[in-house]
Design a protein around this nucleic acid. Sequence first.
DNA 1: TTGCACAATGGCAACGTTAACATTTGGGCG
DNA 2: CGCCCAAATGTTAACGTTGCCATTGTGCAA
Lengths: 344, 344
Amino acid sequence: MASLTRKDRPMAAVKKSVSVKDVARLAGVSEQTVSRTVHDSPSVRPETKERVRAAMRELGYRPNFAGRSLRRGKFKTVGVAMFNITGTGNLDRMEGFAAAADKHGYAITLTKVDGHPYTLESASSRMSALPVDGMVVIMNRMPADFGTFEPLPGMQTVLVTMLEHPLCSTVDNDQFDCSRQVVEYLLRQGHKTVHFISCPERSLSGMQREEGWRETLHAHGIEPPRLVRGDWTAQSGYAAGQALADDPTCTAIYASNDAMAYGCIRGLESRGKHVPEDVSVVGVDDSLGDIVPDRRLATVRFDNRRVGMWAVDKIAGAEGVVSGVEHMLIPGVLVKGDTVRDLR
Amino acid sequence: MASLTRKDRPMAAVKKSVSVKDVARLAGVSEQTVSRTVHDSPSVRPETKERVRAAMRELGYRPNFAGRSLRRGKFKTVGVAMFNITGTGNLDRMEGFAAAADKHGYAITLTKVDGHPYTLESASSRMSALPVDGMVVIMNRMPADFGTFEPLPGMQTVLVTMLEHPLCSTVDNDQFDCSRQVVEYLLRQGHKTVHFISCPERSLSGMQREEGWRETLHAHGIEPPRLVRGDWTAQSGYAAGQALADDPTCTAIYASNDAMAYGCIRGLESRGKHVPEDVSVVGVDDSLGDIVPDRRLATVRFDNRRVGMWAVDKIAGAEGVVSGVEHMLIPGVLVKGDTVRDLR
DNA sequence: TTGCACAATGGCAACGTTAACATTTGGGCG
DNA sequence: CGCCCAAATGTTAACGTTGCCATTGTGCAA
């Protein structure tokens, strides 16, 4: 606030850092009174407080995190371990992490974990030397030690995954429900079956979507048609669209992400098929946003922000109490676009 | 490593945390020797080290960050302050932050700063109580106190912006050069002028692109045509494309991002104009990736990962030494796609 | 045998903060 | 006037780690 120029405080630049001791000396009070003032304790006279505050301003005092958390035994920080920073939905998840942390007065410490080997243990040990009270691990694939992993004692651990873990709370988008919503929506529109464009087998969420698609069809007494395996790119969707264009039984296609769905539409069109007149197409992720201005892709929108918030709430909200293991699935919302035709 | 079951260490769960003292007692050495073992000092006999390591394993010792950094006066952590977590390129920048931090043995602490008011001071004071040795601020807009801001003493501060600051190092994509590359490329292809689809005026990077476009045209003796202001969305690009379709002087359009460029193409097509036969279109950001499978949008690809790495390198690489203020601009790469026609 | 260099280890203090307890001060009341 | 209570402030110790210096042990040359 006080707009001091650099020259006004030559000492501060020399000294390592300003401690309560320095403030106490200048204000003519004890260190404890300074501490109490920092925490706005009611047992300090207002005029004393003001004197201390003036000294803090003059010296540019800011509380030392290390001393504080050494004393308290808490860091008020949640660690986030990611094997891949880049990935669909990570930005929204981080927004959720940050928002929830903010709410509880916590900070977020982000760490990239080398995925070789891809184990929870490596994420955990990476975090163990950092100033965090709990940790969140974002799982994209299946860690080798998922079944045997134990969280560090005293370190509340939340995994972002649909799988359930006996010792760690988990939270994620409900991929299974997502597929159920899409398939049942298409069946309700009068389609006899739903074709699926899948993704690389190593993707956990992709496999769960695939399983959801398969089981929902089974539940409706329909034998799932042969699936086409893509690689998340629009190119692979394009190829899949071309391949499916010649199949007369194919009137509805569910693609495991929006890029493939969009590529698929273009592939179908390149073979003379129209969307949605001839074939309906639904994607997942709502990642294209409004890229295509004249046609809205039917898709499923996930609330990754909420996933992130839940994870951090679980840790920061517990306030040291080791709260029980919980499993949370957050459903996506089906966005009905212009790429699905009602056959009824 | 040792797969102990929970029951094997009931004590660890009870005691707050295991300190060097506990390890020392169990190993029958002094605390100092434990510390030396942790740091793998050569002046500890191998067999002693092994005994200490065994004790550490048995007790599940992990060094306490607070004690350590209190002693050292360093946190080995870089703070990142963001006004908006969600934003083009942020994920790549974070990947860069994390990669550089990793390289130096640092961690990243992420903080969302409330943008009311939008000041560097608010970002700075938010960081001041956190365990960080330096900080990075990602600027999307112009902070009210940009000219008067002073970094906290002893806290190396890097701003992610194209603007230069007298007291803080800065780094960003070179938006000006980006526009120069695009405009000169289009002029080289034989276009007489380049129309521009701009963005909301509050965007710093957008305004710099606009300025680059204007100045490059001037430098070539061309009076910039009236620009169309969009709002980053494909919809606004669509409208702009329709508006420009009737302008016979318009043979080349430069849009301030890819979504608008793509919308623009669709807008032109809706008016019977073909791309690139009738009009050439170039975007910025390479954010569509390969969403459109059958046509590659000409665009500029930025290296946000490198921007992020530079910022963290500047702080973590300095190792406490207050290194001088530097300004770094990282040029983008023009990606020649299928949406530009050679008129020559 | 003594002295010396060097390797290995231990003791102590301090980093900044704050909880717990101790002390001082002032005021009300019998 | 003395007593006691409460408000305001001070003192001490401890959190876990590690730099500095002291001490012990070991082998070798004089």
